Simulated scan of single mutants.
Amino acid sequence: MNERSEKLKYFLREEALSQGFSACRIARAEDMPEAANALAEGIAKGHYGEMAWMAETFERRSSPLKLWPEARSVIMLAMNYGPEDDPRPLLKRKDRANISVYARNRDYHDVIKGKLKQIAGRFAARSGADVKVFVDTAPVMEKPLAEKAGIGWQGKHTNLVSRQFGSWLFLGSIFTTEDIAPDTAERDHCGSCRACLDVCPTKAFPRPYRLDARRCISYLTIEHHGVIPLEFREAMGNRIYGCDDCLAACPWNKFAEQSSEMKLIARDDLKAPRLSQFLGFDDADFRAFFSGSPIKRIGRDRFVRNCLIAAGNSGDAALVPLCRRLIDDDSAAVRAMAVWALARLLPGKEFAALARTRLHESDETVRHEWQREEETLCI
């Protein structure tokens, strides 16, 4: 490593630590054929579901050089967001809403992008090089790049795993025209462990290191439009936004729990909120409550749809009045999931009597929900 490169790396790591990042390492901007081939396979098999942008951005996503041909180095940064406690016990509290750990505070895109811009600006001033900043939503294969940079490796659950921080890492990148000596890539340390695969409630992993997003609760609650497919509803439990099961099961998290780098502390009102407070949300309530949160981007209708699935799985009859009001909601997806919830919370005869009053329903999907549930009761 030449003296200039060494000084720039030291400068970057000091800046990263001062901004609350847990790791900062360098990868060379070059083609990544193995990662590109895995991405192409997933697209060909339809594993990305409604996320059409994965195919649309494939060319740019397949290599850092396709995104920016002048780039010579990629500065990869990671921020540990390991929770204070294991989030899985909340799954047993059926009257509560389980929100993925990463979404219990401010939108990490905003937090990290602001910090990356500061680091990139100072680096550009110091080096004279051009820079570009990317966070998650850009067509960058961040996890393969983080592996090349030595921050961690892509585990069998396809997420990045670190020997120092476990599975709880936010990632961001700075592309630069500066040629910086790359760090040593990390190797796979999963061994024979299958904890993350075996814990998945919807069996979303067709094989190790391959995720079928169409079966993933994170995808279903965040990216999927319309009604939730019947086969996944019970498995969702009380997960109303995302799913942490495969992350939380990773044995390497024991190191993350010892870290003092937690910069994003969960909002108290999102640690174990009651389902009842969300089922009554209109659009204004939703926007106000989740202002600055990543949850806001899915919109009120999808969010309440998810909460109705959780209500149906709760066994809590006290939620019936809230669910009953939602059978007249403007959103067909909300109405349909309200039907499903009521079929599980009401006595059979009471649900059948209610169904007979809903013959005027105009949406075919919602009518199907009423008919299927009523027929099920008659069997």
Score class of each variant (00 low, 15 high):
S5G: 13
K7H: 09
Y10R: 13
Y10V: 15
F11H: 13
F21W: 01
F21M: 07
S22R: 01
I26E: 06
A27P: 06
D31S: 14
A36C: 05
A38G: 03
L39S: 00
A40V: 07
A44Q: 12
G46A: 08
Y48L: 07
M51A: 00
E56Q: 14
F58N: 00
R60D: 15
R61T: 13
S62R: 14
S62H: 09
P69E: 15
L77W: 01
A78H: 07
G82T: 13
N98V: 10
I99A: 11
Y102H: 15
R104A: 07
K115S: 03
K115G: 05
K117R: 14
K117S: 08
K117H: 05
A129T: 04
V133Q: 01
F134N: 05
V135Y: 00
D136I: 02
T137F: 05
A138D: 11
V140S: 05
M141H: 01
K143H: 03
P144Q: 07
G150T: 03
I151P: 04
I151L: 15
G152I: 03
K156G: 02
N159D: 10
F165C: 06
G166D: 07
S173D: 03
F175G: 06
T177S: 10
E178Y: 05
A181F: 06
R187I: 09
C190E: 08
A195Y: 02
L197N: 10
K203Y: 12
A204S: 09
A204Q: 04
P206M: 05
Y209L: 02
R210M: 13
S218D: 11
L220Y: 12
P229T: 01
L230G: 10
E231P: 04
F232D: 08
R233V: 04
I240W: 13
I240Q: 15
G242N: 13
D244V: 10
C246K: 06
L247E: 12
C250E: 09
C250T: 02
F255W: 09
S260D: 15
E261H: 11
I265Q: 15
A266W: 12
R267D: 14
L270D: 01
L270E: 10
L270G: 05
K271G: 08
P273I: 02
S276C: 10
R287N: 13
A288L: 14
R297W: 09
I298G: 05
R300H: 12
R302T: 04
R305A: 11
N306Y: 00
N306C: 05
G312C: 03
N313A: 08
G315I: 04
D316K: 12
R324W: 14
D330I: 03
V334T: 04
V334L: 02
A336F: 03
A341V: 10
A343I: 10
R344L: 07
L346W: 00
E350V: 00
E350R: 04
A352V: 12
A352K: 11
A355S: 08
T357S: 15
E361H: 04
S362T: 12
S362C: 00
D363R: 09
R367V: 01
E369V: 00
W370A: 10
E374T: 15
